[in-house]
Write a protein that binds this DNA or RNA. Structure first.
Lengths: 241, 241
DNA sequence: TGACCGAAAACTGTATACAGAATAGCGTCG
DNA sequence: CGACGCTATTCTGTATACAGTTTTCGGTCA
């Protein structure tokens, strides 16, 4: 039965179920019936339940007292907190990298990524490229201090709804104000790297926190002026305010 | 079969397995055979596997490529990072509580707990009482800002090995230097509460971080001067350095 | 008409069965 | 005597069976 890789069914269940939840495939607070879902995904209840457990842990689902799970409800403040949390953790990663020195292998890659980002925002904006290298920048940042535990926790924080560094880079190239925002973000990227290199821990930390505030600004912008777009940002459909 | 509460088997599996792992019931990097373990705990593989998944997520176990799990190995630096992480998160909780104001209900309870801690360290040390109210103080701190997400993440961080605020309060009343450490800790508790009340966010954050450094100092003391005691602190048996 | 009660259906948590992969043990060959 | 390969056992991942609980729906009574 294991013709495929090690736990293919579970992996599939996790990915599909997560994207279903984020994509608002279920109504607000709706309970998820295991049997039906399992059939719908054409796998058995066992790996599906594994996936549900995981999503509960990630915060997307919540266990209901009487049994089973339902999709979690978020207030706008929860999303803001999640972004703040990511900022704090990235700030810590930046500070520790400054204090301890960067992991050499990652440091050289960081420079390359920064260059790529520069060219992505220079001249005509290469949105796809920016998207890709921005994600890598934040991934590198998390691992730059060489702390496995911090990197893991940062990865987890990025899975909270709309808290990932890439959350607001989903087909937003059409928003005119957005171009400038990306330029500012890249300036902050550079400043963070400079601070880390110069062993300026406090500055690096403050910059990372401020950088996360851009995401918060985007969140507020989208919620206020482009509610239609809120559909496209992964977790925003879960907001009930 | 569900004569007991909702998922009793899983809960039991989780608690017992975690305490087994923390208590060094398994050798370094040993693989955990599911069938044998299930029989040993007299439950089926299903809830046991759930518990294992959870412990993997907590970081106590790690999945091995070929299948199954083994107990994770930690370097001393990992434990230090876990403590630092808790400090950062508690610092954020303190700062946000200062900036936003404390949740009223929790604020009054905080005062009571601080009084209890005062009397616990005054005169002859009431270690058991200190232990209990210290745990509650840190729990309150995590929820003081009213952020569910932050509280959850803080709770998670406390489950990393030896990172909980109570980790180094396990029967250490016999160490002479320790008494003074508790007094200093309580002074820091008071200072944090003062800062939060006065809306001094930066000070509150800094104090919380410094407070966590006490745990780090305890860690280093135990590892260097009382290796015998390292057996008694929950996660320290997992350190391979 | 509306509320309460009871039976049936649906659903969850747990145990077990099953299939394929990994590992260990043993024999054989160099 | 040691290395290699084959087979048997063990173990994991997945599916399914089962028991008890929750929920729903229809009927009865006020």
């Amino acid at each position: 039965m294991d013709r495929q890789e090690r736990n293919a069914q579970f992996a599939r269940a996790l990915i599909e179920l997560r994207s279903m939840v984020l994509g608002a495939a279920f109504g607000a607070g709706e309970r998820l019936p295991e049997t039906a879902l399992a059939e719908r995904l054409s796998l058995s209840r066992t790996p599906l339940r594994q996936a549900m457990d995981r999503l509960v842990d990630e915060g997307l689902l919540e266990r209901v007292e009487t049994g089973g799970c339902r999709v979690a409800q978020f207030k706008l403040s929860d999303i803001k907190d999640a972004i703040e949390l990511r900022g704090v953790l990235e700030g810590t990663a930046a500070r520790l990298a400054a204090e301890r020195g960067m992991v050499p292998a990652l440091a050289t890659r960081l420079d390359e990524v920064l260059s790529e980002l520069d060219t992505a925002v220079a001249g005509t904006l290469d949105f796809r490229s920016y998207q890709k290298f921005n994600a890598e920048f934040h991934d590198l940042l998390g691992r730059l201090a060489g702390s496995t535990i911090l990197a893991k926790e940062l990865e987890r924080a990025g899975r909270l709804p709309a808290a990932s560094p890439s959350s607001f880079l989903q087909g937003q190239e059409m928003i005119p104000d957005f171009r400038e925002s990306l330029t500012r973000a890249q300036q902050q990227h550079r400043a963070m790297a400079d601070a880390i290199r110069a062993r300026e821990g406090a500055r690096a930390e403050a910059l990372a926190r401020e950088h996360a505030r851009l995401a918060r600004a985007n969140l507020e912008y989208v919620m206020r002026k482009e509610p239609a777009l809120a559909e496209r940002v992964p977790g925003l459909s879960l907001i009930a305010d």
